[in-house]
Design a binder for these strands. Structure first.
Lengths: 361, 361
DNA sequence: CCACTTATGTGACTCCGTTTCATAACTGTG
DNA sequence: CACAGTTATGAAACGGAGTCACATAAGTGG
């Protein structure tokens, strides 16, 4: 609780490292100015960090006035994190360095009805391949985070899945960690997508975000205070379970009109039957979204998932119904990421873990 | 961002002060053991705090072995905070010291239909009287927090009130601060009640709490991560606004059966008509509660407000319907506080402000 | 009154960070 | 190519904060 002098050093190390991560490469003097520390302090801190492998000294810049300054760079390649989206039809893995820059993608198809062991094996293969083709040693993966549809509890177990066969009860976090002998995490896909939008997408400046994942299945995730909010059992956002909301059959009903993309297209082209179907879908979507909006009153509502590509054809009626149902409607935007958002969210969550647990704080 | 030696002192001062607040009165040696600091450090810190008025030296304990130890006590009476519940029929003010111990209550009735200026004047009078009868100088009130029904935005303005006449648009926080020339805060009543339950009631060990305030009017508040979550506009929890939920008319419908307390009593005594009315009320309540539970998946659901005194007569059907509607139902308990919960929540919120802004951190 | 117990007081010491000033290592210009 | 100008490094002195060890003070209990 209390601190002695070493606390000061820990704090300043953290501050310096963060500054360097933002800068990429920086001289001692510059880091001193940024952090408010003296050059000497920054120097000893960086020498320590270099010894521990977090930071690397880089040859001085040439052709500038004055004595060449010692330069340091954050070793983003000291470790890696992996995000894996385990979906109904595909598995997508993303390997990123400690700056969160993705260095390798790997996608494999998987069948809708694949039993859990087959899906898990495919995920494992994809994860390993993603790392191997990047030429990264498997031991340098420090954390893995899997994302999937369904309810994922705090420990990373799938406690309920209605779409993937045999998926309920799978200990995703444990298994994913086992692939690389590192920390394993798991979370709901909509939650991870929300995290991605907050990290690099359209929700960057919002603290409280509701993300509605609209596709063949409809789900929702949320961020409260900039942090993922899963709730007691990981089921936060599962408003679709409420009969009065009817998310369960909204997509199913739309499907009766044909391929979803085609229905949206037809509606956009003025086909009245398709327009009515989209209208009904938008209304059902809006009821659930309204319940979430009224419950948490977010700064922003992000609509993502495959069907969000329909754009205004879906969004316009959706906004209209939402305005009808809510007191004050937050800004509604579409996701800026496609189907990489879940894997990227996994990268972000794994990175959060690494920053907290390994970089210390 | 970065810190020099004085940061260390600030941290350790904070730690020591917190320890002393928990202990009430403690010797230097004991504080040293608790905080992990050396006796010397604790001593200089406490001498500083004594000089600044936060802490007072207390005559040594007698009749114990060894050399008498210097003892210090937190000066809980250095400042005070005030919580004011501005309700439809009453105004209740609570004055508390810096330990949160209430030293004075003051209650005044107010008419249902009183216009805003009259209600505000009554609140002001109650607040001042509450302080005056306690013999506390008005200048020693460091923060005031008002609680009221309706939507209260971040700045403490009532942005929407459907029950109190002329209430929409009132700058409660500003006015309340003006009464004592100190910081003024304002929040929704259900939110404050939730805070009280988390502070001293049945929600002490829950991080995410939904509080449903059940009375003539039904409202909800919530805590996320132990902190009040108001949302963008302060409307978080206002699920009653959704037609599909029907909280608006739930209470109104119950009222057609007579005085609510009497209806609950009759239902408990086996009157079938009353039982049906309660059943319908419980169901409507449960639909909204289920929406909140599914949205945020809290650790705990607290049922409070006047009608919660009905106990199991209401709670049993409520729980049944909730179980029907939700995936996994959280623990459901009744509030441990009566109608003081809102004023107490005001005390807590004001205290939070004082701790953050004045005690520093 | 003396042994025992417990807390205080003091001085030396360590860490960490800052300031200051001299010095080093470049660029570019006459 | 020497020299002014610029920018960074290196070293030493210093001060704040915390710790440790040990001597000393002020009680209690027989």
């Amino acid at each position: 609780m209390a601190g002695d002098a070493s606390l000061l050093r820990r704090v300043n190390t953290q501050v310096t490292l963060n500054a360097l991560r933002r800068e990429g490469v920086a001289t001692l003097t510059r880091l001193g100015r940024i952090t408010g520390l003296s050059r000497q302090t920054v120097e000893t801190v960086l020498d320590e960090l270099a010894e521990r492998g977090w930071v690397r000294e880089i040859p001085p810049d040439e052709g500038v006035m004055g004595r060449p300054a010692r330069r340091f760079g954050f070793r983003a390649d000291a470790g890696y994190v992996l995000g894996v989206d385990i979906g109904a039809n595909k598995i997508l893995a993303a390997l990123a360095d400690l700056n969160g820059e993705v260095v390798s993608w790997h996608r494999v198809p998987v069948s809708d009805g694949a039993p859990a062991p087959e899906r898990l094996e495919a995920a494992r293969q994809a994860a390993l391949a993603c790392v191997d083709v990047a030429g990264v040693a498997r031991t340098r993966v420090w954390a893995v985070c899997a994302g999937t549809s369904g309810v994922v509890d705090r420990s990373g177990r799938v406690s309920l899945s209605t779409v993937l066969p045999g998926w309920t009860g799978v200990d995703l976090a444990g298994l994913a960690g086992g692939w690389f002998g590192c920390k394993g995490l798991a979370a709901n896909d909509a939650n991870l997508a929300a995290l991605t939008e907050h990290w690099r997408g359209s929700a960057q400046h919002a603290a409280d975000v509701v993300y509605v994942l609209v596709g063949h299945r409809v789900g929702a995730g949320m961020l409260i205070g900039g942090r993922l909010h899963g709730g007691r059992t990981g089921a936060a956002g599962e408003i679709g379970a409420l009969r009065q909301v009817g998310w369960e059959d909204a997509a199913a009903e739309l499907d009766t009109h044909g391929e979803a993309a085609a229905v949206f297209k037809a509606a956009g082209d003025g086909d009245p039957a398709a327009a009515r179907a989209v209208e009904r879908f938008a209304e059902k979507l809006a009821i659930g979204a309204a319940a979430l909006v009224l419950a948490v009153d977010p700064d922003l509502l992000v609509v993502g998932g495959g069907y969000s590509r329909a754009g205004d054809v879906l969004l316009t009626p959706f906004r209209r119904h939402l305005t009808d149902l809510c007191l004050g409607v937050p800004e509604v935007v579409t996701s800026t990421f496609g189907d990489e958002s879940v894997a990227l969210g996994g990268v972000r969550l794994a990175l959060d873990h690494v920053e907290r647990e390994i970089l210390g704080l």
